[in-house]
Design a protein around this nucleic acid. Structure first.
Lengths: 241, 241
DNA sequence: TATTATAAGTTGTATATACAAATAATATGT
DNA sequence: ACATATTATTTGTATATACAACTTATAATA
């Protein structure tokens, strides 16, 4: 773990020092740490080198900096960082093993709950699509998409059985921002049917809700359902050794 | 969205340009982008300024760089970035509304599946604790922890009803690395009981598995169960406007 | 032809410097 | 005592330079 034959750069040494001070609680959260200049002096490097060490820890959220004031140890994060959740459909597409099936595609009046999430008025007309995504021939995701009609007026005129509507929408209005939410749900009977889940199969699904934004408006809202016990969602913890 | 009265720094301008080229597919994944020097020349800035723009995009995984070769547009990520999952227990602790209840605390022989995950031999003695975490008086998490005995030999001698064993373990062997995995599960009868879930309540739980590493060894493995429909796990999607 | 040096190109690290911008402490004036 | 300037401190941006480390292309050699 240690025996590197390569020279450790100086900014990395300072970084290690800072991390150590924080991890061993020598420097408590909220505490002000030495200035860039002071670090540069003690480690006999230029300010820019010391700065890099500090900056990289700030980028990771370990330190917070404010111009004119100083650099402080960040309060302990209350969120689990970077839980890598795989986009199973993207993986399937990358492996050229993806197919999709359009269950329904209509223009409907939006319900109030979805309207609120999309920033639209209730009863606005939106496109509503139900899609099942397959890995080879096995369903891996059930998806319902609501689309802002004014931002993709020609959606239903596309050959949606050929082109995944998600791809079309991504191409048409490239998402600037994306929102996610995750929860565990029980699938409805029809969802179970469309996901081809038998009685023996798990009763649980991971439900991912997603909003795509273009500028300041939501252009699509999706609910995506994944069979829970499958290996698809979440990184498998690898065996040690 | 635009009308900033502050001057936009030059590295940000270059960053924007690069992002635009990538987002509009002008530069496809895998394509080599202009060198730092070339960017510096076209934007009439120093190489270090151009470098910063490139570097920050590389830090975000949008570009990949290899010394001696060049900088390339990264292949499309197949994982959903930065899904912010709150650590509900940490939040409860921050609000000073956290209590915990030790259900059991023993030394047991490890089963083969857990042994594999912890990198230990089957039948090794480990500490096994079952803990329920409360927000004020409501259970928000059921937790089972397996602890490498050699790394925390005095664990069971602590006043575990006073000090959360997680805090003790964090203090004793500060985790260098952490692994997570997430899935949806149905709680067992006893888990439901300990989480005080009634028949009317949701049948689903989000299960988070976590490994804490110290150097190259796993020192604890936890399974944490959260009632699913609660607001605890995952960021609530906010209403627009 | 195949192998091995050599050179050129590109990113990585580091320095010394300068000024801008925000904050915090001090001095000033009423 | 209070409000207002002024100054000092600290981080943010930017430049020009130098050399190290690595990759790739080219030239030299067997």
């Amino acid at each position: 773990m240690e025996a590197k034959d390569h020279k450790i750069p100086q900014f990395a040494v300072i970084k290690q020092y800072l991390e150590q001070q924080i991890n061993t609680q020598q420097w408590a959260p909220g505490r002000r740490i030495p200035t860039e200049q002071s670090l540069a002096d003690t480690f006999s490097v230029s300010r820019m080198t010391a700065r890099r060490a500090v900056q990289e820890l700030a980028d990771r959220g370990i330190l917070t900096r404010t111009q004119g004031s100083g650099t402080y140890v960040a309060e302990k994060s209350q969120s689990i960082p970077n839980l890598p959740i795989k986009d199973v459909v993207a993986v399937a597409k990358a492996e050229h093993s993806h197919k999709h099936k359009i269950i329904s595609a209509d223009a409907v009046q939006i319900t109030s709950d979805i309207a609120k999430l999309m920033g639209l008025q209730t009863d606005t007309l939106v496109f509503q699509l139900t899609v099942v995504h397959l890995y080879v021939d096995r369903p891996i995701q059930w998806q319902k998409i609501w689309v802002n009609r004014s931002m993709a007026p020609a959606l239903l005129k596309q050959k949606l059985d050929k082109v995944d509507p998600n791809d079309y929408l991504d191409w048409l209005c490239r998402p600037q921002k994306t929102d996610y939410q995750l929860k565990a749900v029980l699938p409805t009977a029809s969802q179970r049917l469309q996901l081809m889940l038998s009685q023996q199969d798990t009763l649980n699904c991971m439900q991912l809700s997603r909003r795509h934004w273009s500028a300041d408006a939501v252009f699509s809202f999706s609910i995506m359902l994944h069979p829970a016990e499958s290996y698809y969602l979440g990184d498998e913890l690898k065996e040690v050794q």
